[in-house]
Design a protein around this nucleic acid. Structure first.
Lengths: 250, 250
DNA sequence: CGTACGTTTGACTCTGTTCAATTGCCGTGG
DNA sequence: CCACGGCAATTGAACAGAGTCAAACGTACG
C-alpha cells in the first residue's frame, strides 16, 4: 500500500530521489548534492516489528523514512506505551535526541521499511558549507514543533469523533503528498495504537469508527479506510458536527 | 515574584548575563561572545497583556525571555484559545515560525517582561562561524520537541489531578533553575489558561486544586501556591495515587 | 486446525463537563 | 470612604462522554 512506484533504490543518489523535495532545499547545485550524498548511508532496512532505535540508545544519526511506516512511542512510568507519532516516507526521525545525545523514544517499523541514515555531526559540518541545507534542516525541525502544537490542540480540545476525523484527514493529506490516493488507504496501525496516539481507549476508537461508518462518512474494513467526501469531512470535523467555514485543521 | 536579583540590565553583555547558560554553549571565547552580542537586540520590553508577536505576522526574529512570563496560544476554528505553553526567563520563543516564515501562535506577556530579540538570518550566519553556537541552537530546538512529547503524553494519558500535579512540579523545577523557591511561587495565569493548557475546564482545575489542598498536598490561595512535599508529590503524581518508585515525569 | 491477537459490541461506571448560583477581589467613580 | 461593576474563583447538581469489564467474533500465523 505504501510502495511508491518511484521508490528510490538503495543505489540512487539524492539527485534523482523522488523524496528529494522533502529532504533537501530546492536550489542546490549538482556538486552540492554530491557532497550531501556523501554523508548519507542509504542501506538502512528495518523489518516489520523491528526497531530503528530505542529509547536510551546513544544518538549519532538522524533518519529519513524512504519507504514503509514507523511509529514512535515513549513508555510512561507504569511501562505503558504512549504513541507520539506515525511516520511516513519523507519524514525525519530522531530529532528529539539532539538535545541530550540520547534517544528518548522508541521507533519501530509497522511494515518493512527503508531509511536513509544521516550522521548528525557531519550534517552540521556540511551545513556550514551549504547554508541553504542548514536552513532547510531548521525548517524541518520547526515544522515538527508546529505539528506537535497541532496534536496538543487536538488532545486538549477535541472529542473522540473529531480526533479520529482529524487523524484520518491528516493521513489522507500525507498519502496525497506521496502520490497515493487521498481517499483510500490502509491503516497499518492497530486500534490500540491509534487510541494511544489520540488519547483514547481502543474501544472508543472502534466505536467512533463504527459510528462514522453508520453516518456514511467513511467506509472501514479492519485496516482499510475509504473517506467518502473529504472536503465535507473537513468542514464537518469541527466540534459537535456544526458546519464550519472551511478552516483546515491539523 | 519573578524578579531575579541578578536580572540582566539592558546594557549588560551576554558575557555577564545571569541567563547565559540557557542561551549559549559553555565553552565560548570572549571575542566570540562579543560577536554574538552584536546580533542581539536587548531592548524588547512587553507590558503585561501586551503581545510580543501575533499569529500571522512575518517571522524575522527569535526571542529569549529575560524577565517576566509569557503564554503562547493558538486560536482554533471556533475562535477559542488553546494555550500551547507558558514561558519563563531563559526560554526561546518563535521557533515554530521558522518552518513557514510566519508566526503560527500568539505570544502575550502575563506580566511586565523583557526579551532579547535575535535576528534569525544573522543567527544562521554567525552559527556558521561558531559551530558550537549552532549546535547549541539545535539542542534548544530539539529540547522543545522533547518537551512537547511530554505534554502530549500528559494530555494523552493522565487524569485531571495528575495533570495538575505535573504542571506544578514542572513550574517548580523551572523556578528552581532560575534560583527561586521551588516550593512557593505565584501562578501568573488564570484557571482558565491552566485548563486550556492541560485540556481541562476551569471548573475542573479549581476543583482539583481544592482537592489537592484538602488532601494536604498543596496550599493554594488564588494565585499563590505552596507545595508541601515535592518529592512525595513526585512519587504520588502517578496514576490513581499509587506509590510509584521515584520516576520523574515532565 | 487451533491458538493468539485484534476488533466489535453491549452494559455499567466514573470522570470531567455543563449550567448555575455564590463569593471574593480589585479598580473606578460617586 | 463606600458602593458598584466586572472578572476570577469556588462549589453544587445534573448530565454526557469516555473508560472499564466482559463476551463474542474474525483473522493471521504457526
Amino acid at each position: 500500500m505504501l510502495q511508491n512506484p518511484n521508490l528510490p533504490s538503495s543505489k540512487t543518489s539524492c539527485f534523482s530521489c523522488s523524496l528529494r523535495e522533502f529532504c533537501l532545499p530546492a536550489e542546490l547545485e549538482e556538486d552540492e548534492i554530491n557532497a550531501i550524498n556523501f554523508l548519507i548511508n542509504r542501506s538502512c532496512k528495518t523489518r516489520r516489528g523491528g526497531y530503528l532505535y530505542r529509547a536510551g540508545m546513544d544518538f549519532q544519526s538522524l533518519y529519513i523514512v524512504r519507504s514503509g511506516f514507523f511509529k514512535t512511542y515513549v513508555l510512561d512510568e507504569d511501562g505503558r506505551e504512549q504513541v507520539t507519532g506515525f511516520h511516513m516516507p519523507g519524514e525525519m526521525l530522531g530529532l528529539e535526541a539532539i538535545s541530550t545525545n540520547v534517544h528518548t523514544c522508541h521507533t519501530v517499523a509497522l511494515e518493512d521499511s527503508e531509511t536513509c541514515e544521516i550522521h548528525f555531526a557531519r550534517l552540521e559540518e556540511i551545513g556550514r558549507i551549504i547554508p541553504s541545507l542548514m536552513h532547510h534542516f531548521h525548517k524541518i525541525m520547526s515544522g515538527k514543533i508546529v505539528h506537535n502544537h497541532e496534536i496538543i490542540a487536538l488532545l486538549g480540545g477535541m472529542k473522540a469523533r473529531e480526533r479520529l476525523i482529524a487523524l484520518l484527514l491528516n493521513l489522507s493529506d500525507r498519502f496525497a503528498k506521496l502520490g497515493h490516493s487521498s481517499s483510500n488507504f490502509n491503516l497499518c496501525m492497530t486500534r490500540k495504537e491509534i487510541g494511544s496516539y489520540l488519547g483514547l481507549k481502543l474501544e472508543t476508537v472502534s466505536r467512533a469508527f463504527s459510528k462514522l461508518q453508520k453516518d456514511g462518512l467513511i467506509k472501514i474494513n479492519s485496516k482499510s479506510v475509504q473517506l467518502n467526501n473529504i472536503s465535507w469531512l473537513k468542514q464537518r470535523s469541527g466540534r459537535y458536527c456544526q458546519v464550519i467555514e472551511g478552516a483546515e485543521f491539523l
